[in-house]
């Protein structure tokens, strides 16, 4: 039985998934977290997905890999994926790996929700 790794809520047609864990570096945690995010996109009603990292203080390259897989699936199902609430240190890992050019990243949840009205796929 897997543990719940995300809290999910809806704001209008936007699905917001907030990561529960402070550290995304354990293989099992990342597997469950990634699977639960991917499962959201199986729902046809989820075509605007905002992943909130406000509780996350550490993320390994394995978690970045899971996000790339999520991004790929979002494109396949024509969903828009946004990330928000990323800690400054983790953001540096995104910059170093240039994944800040792959993902649309917003400062916080409010900004993420607002930007869905003007966002276009990268």
């Amino acid at each position: 039985m897997s543990q719940q790794r995300i809290d999910v809520k809806k704001v209008a047609d936007i699905t917001i998934a907030t990561s529960r864990d402070m550290k995304l570096n354990d293989d099992l945690v990342i597997q469950e977290w990634g699977d639960q995010l991917l499962a959201l996109l199986d729902d046809h009603a989820c075509r605007k997905l905002l992943v909130n990292f406000e509780r996350v203080l550490f993320m390994s390259s394995s978690a970045l890999r899971a996000l790339i897989t999520l991004n790929k699936k979002a494109k396949e199902v024509k969903a828009t994926l946004l990330l928000c609430g990323i800690d400054d240190n983790i953001m540096e890992a995104f910059r170093i790996t240039r994944l800040d050019n792959v993902f649309q990243i917003k400062k916080n949840e409010d900004e993420g929700v607002r930007s869905f009205t003007v966002v276009t796929d990268k």
Partner: peptide, 22 residues
């Protein structure tokens, strides 16, 4: 190099790059 546009979406190969960078 995982930052090479050709490899940007490849799911592996970032660990060594992150070590070197940090």
């Amino acid at each position: 190099d995982p930052t090479d546009p050709e490899h940007l979406l490849v799911t592996s190969g970032r660990g060594v790059f992150l070590i070197k960078s940090f």
